[in-house]
């Protein structure tokens, strides 16, 4: 039976001295990879009000509202409580008004606090 344990010995010894696979999260933070889909950020100045993002958003998390009656100016309201971070709006936007940031700590006490307005 003893010779059966031998294949495990190197593995066991190696794991004794190996760095833990986990990090102490709130104190130590791992960097997110490039291209990580964090929060949606909108540059409202570029918006032309085509509403493609509103129609394509699978979570219905985007509202585009016309600000002035005379000028073609829009504001974007992101309901981050509904957002599923798929970045379809980034792909759909014809004027490239959207991008995703690297933020991943988005918890809040109320869903109303998660509403973000871009003017």
């Amino acid at each position: 039976m003893n010779n059966k344990i031998v294949p495990f010995l190197p593995e066991l010894l190696r794991h004794l001295f190996k760095k833990p696979a986990t990090v102490k999260y709130p104190f130590e933070k791992e960097a997110v990879p490039e291209g990580f889909r964090g929060n949606v950020v909108c540059d409202a100045a570029k918006c032309i009000g085509c509403m493609i993002c509103v129609n394509d958003c699978p979570a219905e998390a985007i509202d585009i509202i016309r600000v002035s009656e005379t000028e073609k100016k829009f504001k974007m309201i992101l309901h981050n409580d509904r957002c599923i971070h798929c970045a379809q709006c980034v792909d759909s936007c014809p004027t490239k008004a959207y991008h995703m940031d690297a933020e991943y700590e988005t918890a809040a006490f109320s869903r109303h606090d998660l509403k973000i307005e871009y003017k």
Binding site: P33, E34, G35, F36, R37, I84, C86, D91, M100
Partner: peptide
């Protein structure tokens, strides 16, 4: 995570190829 932007929901597919 590195090539798609997320660990679980990769959101890689789209009609006509990948994103």
């Amino acid at each position: 995570d590195w090539i798609t932007g997320n660990r679980v929901h990769y959101a890689m597919n789209t009609f006509g190829g990948v994103r």
